[in-house]
Design a protein around this nucleic acid. Sequence first.
DNA 1: ATGGCCGGTGGAACCGGA
Length: 268
Amino acid sequence: MKIVTYNINGIKARIHALPEWLKETEPDVVLLQEIKTVDEGFPSEVFEDLGYNVEVHGQKSFNGVAILSKFPLEDVVRGLPGNDEDEQARWIEATVLGDTPIRVCGLYLPNGNPVELTPDGTPVIGGKFAYKLEWMERLYKRAQDLLAEEVPALMTGDYNIIPQPEDAARPHAWEGDAAFRPESLAAWRRILNLGFTEAFRARVQGPEHYSFWDYQAGAWNKNDGIRIDHFLLTPQCADLLLDCQIESEVRGREKPSDHVPVWVELAA
DNA sequence: ATGGCCGGTGGAACCGGA
């Protein structure tokens, strides 16, 4: 089973390129981020015509996540639990009913910039960076519960986290950014250390593997990228891992998103 | 060498992204 994560930066802007890519690569499951539309604005028919079941958790203008699946989906949950006041659409999960059922969680983790700190170095309450860390705290709890189920499951999406210096072409340029702050990386490692496998690094070592290139300053042409789209697998899911790759070629196509698809192949 | 964008909203600039 091939499962893809892809931050498409607006479904309206990607309405031609995305179906084309799906026809070419025929993934079984796709977790989309930044659809940037309300549920009713999402063109589900386009994907249903390609054989996908579609579940959407949308929001006007910003954020928004969705799942496309060639297998039936059940037990769909929208929104990351733990904060009823959070109205941003950044989380959707469901069980994919293939030969081996897989729980898939699609996430769009807050960017967190600008980083605003009080004089004693703690994040300003109500600020974007505080929101990122609060969201990661809830992600930690959801991750704990997911592991306790002891089933094949994964959490994938745009984490807005640069895990290591080798995951940026110019790591120095990202010092102080919310994606590379010590607090952010600590929260990331704390989740990982619960017992998840980061699929890409389980398969591929070394620098120059990126999943995002800014639209500005010719970043793509200079390969000035960062790797921020990740798969975290539970042990039962990691046992099924066959491969994980980044489709960087997609960034060079007509009218691309600033992110590219990343996928895992599972023996499921 | 330097600087360079894009999407959505709404109908012009502005916000948000990373």
